[in-house]
């Protein structure tokens, strides 16, 4: 892991991906018309020019990364990516579940699971946290500020108030 996943490799991969994206945008710019009409610049001119600037910058960074000899590993220690996954995966899941389960249920599950799993809190404490956070949010957003949040399917059926 340390040896092949270096800052340099990641930089090259990211630059190539972005370079692909900027070429795609340039093509789109040409399709929209990247020239001048009698009404001034056409719709595609600015996207085209910006994608070109981006591509030039990317090539500069790419060349520098290619020549780089003294690179560092992307993750200096295994703890880095282990902790990243332990924190990042639950956060990603919480976000991914919000459209289907609604904010209040997904955030409750998330706080509960993270406290019990990552934080090694007791089940009771985690349950308390998992109920308290969404309840506090509900009171604040629903009654305090009247801001709408994504709701659960049971809300639409009239079974739950959130």
């Amino acid at each position: 892991m340390r040896d092949f996943l270096t800052i340099r490799t990641v930089e090259i991969v990211v630059c190539l991906l972005l370079l692909g994206l900027s070429v795609r945008v340039m093509m789109e710019g040409v399709r929209l018309g990247a020239g001048w009409s009698e009404r001034g610049p056409q719709s595609g001119l600015f996207p085209f020019a910006l994608a070109l600037i981006m591509a030039l910058g990317l090539v500069t960074v790419l060349v520098a990364a290619w020549r780089e000899r003294a690179t560092r590993p992307f993750f200096e220690a295994p703890e880095e990516w282990i902790d990243l996954l332990k924190v990042g995966v639950p956060a990603g899941l919480a976000i991914a579940l919000t459209p289907t389960l609604g904010l209040y249920i997904s955030s409750g599950l998330y706080v509960f699971a993270f406290m019990a799993g990552y934080g090694r809190f007791s089940w009771l404490q985690a349950l308390f946290g998992g109920l308290l956070v969404p309840a506090g949010l509900y009171l604040l957003l629903r009654y305090g500020f009247n801001i709408a949040m994504p709701m659960s399917p049971w809300y639409r059926q009239g079974i739950l108030p959130f």
Partner: peptide, 20 residues
């Protein structure tokens, strides 16, 4: 404040702020 409490609260607030 335990990290395991703060982090999910921050993430949830990020969702709230973005959606609102």
């Amino acid at each position: 404040t335990p990290y395991a409490i703060l982090t999910p609260i921050i993430v949830v607030l990020c969702i709230v702020g973005a959606f609102a």
